[in-house]
Simulated scan of single mutants.
Amino acid sequence: MSAAGQDQSTLFRGDEGELRLKDAKSVRGTPAKAMPAFILGEELADLAETDPRIVVATADLANSSRTRDFANRHPDRFIDFGIAERNMITAAAGMASCGLVPYVATFASFAGILAAEAIKTDCAYPRMPVRIIAHHSGISMGFYGTSHHATEDLGMMRTIADLTVVCAADANQLRAILRASVDHPGAMYIRLGRGRDAEVYAQVPADFAFGKATTLREGKDLTIIATGSQVHAAITAADRLAETGASVRVIDMHTIKPLDESAVRAAARETKAILTVEEHNVVGGLGSAVAEVLVDEDRLPFRRHGIQDEFSLIGPPAALYAHYRLDADGVTAVARELLQIN
């Protein structure tokens, strides 16, 4: 990265004006500087300027996660463990036990699935303040296939006691999550996409709080409860449905655990149907968490939308989102089915 002509930090961060990546179908012209994975290292480096406890580690993915940006500014507080994800998380627990606040980043398939036991036993059980950054979650790895897709991690993580589980919808929300995470008690699993998420929040949300969902649209006919990469698709679907006369509430359920049960109960009492949307298996994730709350409420039409309990296909991410109806068109179609709108 230091050789002449090899440093691509400007490309990844988008420092030169509104630099945009060229793959229009996949990126849809999103400014590079607004992409979550690409601001991760930068934001952590900023936080570390005033907090000497913060350390960052990766498992041979410093460029993919852009933790390279942290390493460039704080090389003495950065560790690349190589392809040793479980060792990295266990070592991070050791660092936390000495008073540090470690942020460890790797693909979600390796963090939340491969290293689940280390997260449970070494981080959550002793309540160590380790922040696991699980990037490239869901089906965002595309052609890399089943071993690299992570459509089970939310289900696995939310069953671990004393573990906070949160999903970032865009770059600004990720900044808010990171800032709020520094002094948050216990271990945390922070789920990201591949860093190409469209903007949901124009500014860093000042009122962000773990366990407190954000209502982005009000409505009375349907509530769409979405998380992570699906929040933007849910907003677009709500806008399109409004053109047909349907009034749709949109809730960003960024924290999967602890879940904002009050927001779910209010939606059940104030709107006519609920649709959950997630880039995850419909079994065990956001939809299951919401269903566990709704079982105590009066019955209303409810549908879980995501990967329908199958191993996801292999292909370009944009094509996979369309296939599983996890893009704006797909979410709109599913909502219309639930509302029985022709």
Score class of each variant (00 low, 15 high):
residue 3 A to P: 00
residue 5 G to W: 02
residue 22 K to E: 14
residue 23 D to G: 00
residue 25 K to C: 00
residue 29 G to H: 12
residue 30 T to D: 01
residue 36 P to R: 08
residue 37 A to E: 12
residue 39 I to P: 01
residue 45 A to Q: 05
residue 46 D to S: 09
residue 51 D to R: 04
residue 57 A to H: 09
residue 65 S to R: 08
residue 68 R to T: 06
residue 68 R to L: 14
residue 73 R to H: 02
residue 78 F to P: 05
residue 82 G to W: 12
residue 84 A to R: 10
residue 85 E to W: 08
residue 90 T to I: 09
residue 90 T to Y: 02
residue 90 T to K: 02
residue 91 A to W: 12
residue 91 A to F: 14
residue 93 A to M: 06
residue 93 A to S: 15
residue 94 G to S: 07
residue 95 M to L: 15
residue 99 G to Y: 09
residue 102 P to I: 07
residue 105 A to F: 05
residue 106 T to D: 01
residue 120 K to A: 14
residue 122 D to M: 11
residue 127 R to M: 15
residue 131 R to F: 07
residue 133 I to C: 00
residue 137 S to T: 08
residue 141 M to G: 00
residue 141 M to Y: 03
residue 142 G to R: 08
residue 150 A to L: 06
residue 151 T to I: 15
residue 152 E to H: 05
residue 154 L to Y: 09
residue 156 M to L: 15
residue 162 D to R: 10
residue 163 L to R: 02
residue 166 V to I: 14
residue 171 A to T: 08
residue 172 N to P: 01
residue 173 Q to W: 05
residue 174 L to P: 02
residue 175 R to E: 11
residue 175 R to Q: 13
residue 175 R to D: 10
residue 177 I to R: 01
residue 182 V to W: 01
residue 183 D to P: 00
residue 184 H to F: 11
residue 186 G to V: 13
residue 187 A to S: 13
residue 189 Y to W: 12
residue 195 G to D: 08
residue 196 R to E: 11
residue 197 D to I: 03
residue 197 D to G: 10
residue 199 E to M: 13
residue 199 E to P: 07
residue 200 V to R: 06
residue 204 V to R: 12
residue 208 F to C: 02
residue 209 A to D: 10
residue 212 K to G: 00
residue 214 T to K: 15
residue 214 T to L: 10
residue 217 R to V: 02
residue 219 G to K: 03
residue 219 G to A: 06
residue 220 K to Y: 00
residue 225 I to G: 04
residue 227 T to Q: 07
residue 232 H to N: 14
residue 237 A to Y: 04
residue 244 T to P: 01
residue 251 I to T: 09
residue 259 L to N: 03
residue 261 E to M: 09
residue 262 S to W: 01
residue 267 A to D: 06
residue 268 A to N: 06
residue 269 R to T: 13
residue 270 E to C: 05
residue 271 T to K: 03
residue 273 A to L: 07
residue 278 E to R: 04
residue 285 G to F: 07
residue 288 S to A: 14
residue 288 S to H: 03
residue 293 V to H: 01
residue 294 L to W: 09
residue 299 R to E: 13
residue 301 P to A: 09
residue 301 P to F: 04
residue 302 F to C: 05
residue 306 G to C: 09
residue 308 Q to L: 11
residue 309 D to Q: 11
residue 312 S to R: 04
residue 316 P to S: 08
residue 322 A to M: 06
residue 328 A to T: 08
residue 329 D to K: 05
residue 330 G to A: 08
residue 331 V to P: 11
residue 334 V to K: 11
residue 335 A to N: 09
residue 338 L to N: 08
